[in-house]
Each structure stands twice: as C-alpha cells, then as structure tokens.
C-alpha cells in the first residue's frame, strides 16, 4: 500500500492508516469506536476534497499514471459479461499492450479494444508498459473491422504513455499502423465510443481514439506529447515535466473546454483507484448513455458524424486575402 501512495496522497494515507488501526483495535477489543471512526473518515473525506479541488496538471498526470489505478481489464471485468478475448493481428504477432474481444454490455454485444498496462514489474514488462507495437494497432483494427461486419458497437479504452518506439516497431511500420487505424476508424459504419481511462499518450492514444464520442475520466490526461518529452525538447530538461504539463494543458477539463472531448466521467472521491466499483459504475453509465444516444443514427451516419466531429477540430484565424 505505502509503495503506491503519491506524495499528494500522503496526508490521506496517514488518516487511512489511523482509521484502519482504530478499526482493528475496536474489533480486537470489542469496543465500539464507531463515532471516532466516523469522525476520522469525514475528516479524511474533507481532506481528499480539499486536495482534489486544487490538483495541478502534473498532479493529474501522476494520478492518471497511478500504479493502483484501474486498467482496461479491470473495467472489462467490472462492467461487461462474457468477455471473450481475441488475439493477434494475423500478420506478425499478438501484442500484449492492447487487449480486445467481444463482451456483453447489459445484455448487448459489443467489441472492446484497449491499451493494457501491467500491475507489477513482471506484468509491466509483459504488457510493455502499455506501449503498443504495430501488431497491437493492427489487431485492434482487425477486431474493429469485424465489429463493423457484424454491426456491433465498439468501445475503445485509452491508457498508454505512448506508442512503442523500439527498433522492431519502426521496422514493422508503427507510423503506418497508427495512421491506418485513424483512416479506417474514421469510416467505420458502427458507433465507436472512446474512453480515456488513464494516460492518453499522443500517437499511441489517437491510433485507437477516432470515435463518435470521446469521454475522459475525471483524472485522466490526454496530450500531444508526454510532458517530460516536451520539457526535454523545449528546455532540454526532462525533469521540468510539471511545467510542461501546465503549458500543454493536458487535463480532461481543458480538453472539454477546447471542445476536443464530449464528456468528463466523474471519478469516486480521491480517484478511481480508491474505489474500483464506483469508478466502473460511473464509466458504465456514461458508456451506456452515449451508446443509446448514438443508436439513433443510421449506419452511414456514424462515419459522417465522426468525420464532422474531427473535421471541426482546429483553432485558427482567417485573414482576408487581397
């Protein structure tokens, strides 16, 4: 537990510890300490509200990357029934950094694709830290095209620091894979709902994120470049990530302000990692509502709607021409 506590969470963890201790004592001694416990819990919740009301862009980045934060498979387990995972791109390999397959959402079939990070060191390596290779994007595309063929809606979970940029990924055309996904996703004739659940890391994210609806969890981030890399380029100093995060305005709130996403999904108090079930319930309700709204469109309209959505993204001025 203590290992997975962010600096900003330390005062909260302190109170959590006291509460846990009090509970143990009251159980062991059979003394009713419920008043004290309730008092401390309300103190803790106030503290969380205070801390979370003033999060910087960098704090949000750290929460989005929180090692205890629920990942794609956690949400799949909590939200869907009968997940049938499908593997491989039929071209080269099965990328463990992207998972996908059929599942049932409140009784209706959907296709899920999403980045998957690992929890411990071994699993992180297995998942390549959520950095997908060309075969991951190509697997996702294969599944999305299958969904299109079967007329099944697609739900895409975004949670990646960036696409993999190893030698092998360059050899096999990581750029082409990402570009191809955006190209094909833009034309899909089924509804696509994208949810940024943690890190929306640049090209690695957008390669799965051309949807009719783009939702972001309250403490997720979405950025054109990792703040550390931005700092490395601008100031030649990767430790200035916090300043870069501020400049890049990578929070869900900013993305909504700029009209680049449709909705922010509220997280439980203190972030999704403090209550998986509540986070999953919140996410599930938002996805179902968006799919219901989209169900009014016809098959050709899904592509048109997506095109119009992305075509309008751009902030520029126009000068009169002589």
């Amino acid at each position: 537990m203590a290992l997975n506590v962010l600096d900003l969470e330390k005062p909260i963890a302190e109170l959590d510890k006291n509460i846990a201790a009090l509970k143990t004592v009251s159980e062991e001694e059979g003394v009713d300490r419920s008043v004290e416990i309730a008092e401390l819990e309300s103190q803790r919740d106030n503290l969380i509200s205070q801390i979370f009301a003033n999060l910087s862009a960098w704090d949000k980045t750290l929460i989005a990357r929180h090692p205890s934060r629920p990942y794609t498979l956690d949400y799949i387990r909590a939200i869907f029934d009968d997940f049938i995972e499908l593997h491989g791109d039929r071209l080269f390999a099965d990328d463990k950094a992207i998972v996908g397959g059929f599942a049932s959402l409140s009784g209706r079939p959907v296709m899920i694709v999403g980045h998957q990070k690992g929890r411990d060191l071994k699993e992180r390596q297995y998942r390549n830290f959520g950095s997908a290779k060309p075969e991951g994007y190509r697997k996702a595309l294969r599944l999305m095209k299958m969904a299109e063929k079967l007329g099944i809606p697609i739900i895409s979970f975004i949670d990646t620091p960036a696409a993999d940029c190893s030698f092998g990924s360059e050899e096999r055309g990581i750029s082409e894979a990402i570009a191809r996904n955006m190209y094909e996703m833009s034309m899909l004739t089924v509804p696509v709902v994208v949810v940024v659940i943690g890190e929306g890391g640049s090209g690695g994210a957008i390669g799965l994120a051309v949807g009719n609806r783009i939702l972001m969890l309250e403490h997720s981030v979405y950025s054109v470049i990792p703040p550390e890399s931005c700092a490395a380029i601008i100031w030649r100093d990767p430790t200035k990530g916090p300043q870069a995060a501020e400049c890049l305005k990578i929070t869900a709130q900013h993305a909504l302000e700029n009209g680049l996403i449709d909705e922010i999904i509220p997280e439980p108090l203190g972030g999704a990692h403090r209550n998986y079930d509540a986070a999953a319930a919140s996410l599930k309700a938002a996805v179902i509502r968006n799919l219901e709204e989209l169900s009014e469109l016809s098959a050709e309209d899904y592509a048109k709607d997506r095109y119009a959505k992305f075509r309008n993204m751009g902030i520029f001025g126009t000068e009169p021409q002589e």
Partner: peptide, 26 residues
C-alpha cells in the same frame, strides 16, 4: 511532428487529416 505549442488540438490534426485522406481515398 505535431506542434506541441498547440497541445491536444495538434494531436487531433492527425485524426482530422487521416479522416480527410480516407474521404479522398474513396
């Protein structure tokens, strides 16, 4: 690459231009 000084909207240009290429491609 994308122009980081414009933040997320620059990333969205990747999707926008790819969608335009797709429309043209048909």
């Amino acid at each position: 690459g994308a122009r980081m000084q414009e933040g997320l909207v620059s990333l969205m240009q990747m999707a926008k231009t790819s969608a335009a290429a797709a429309k043209f491609g048909r």
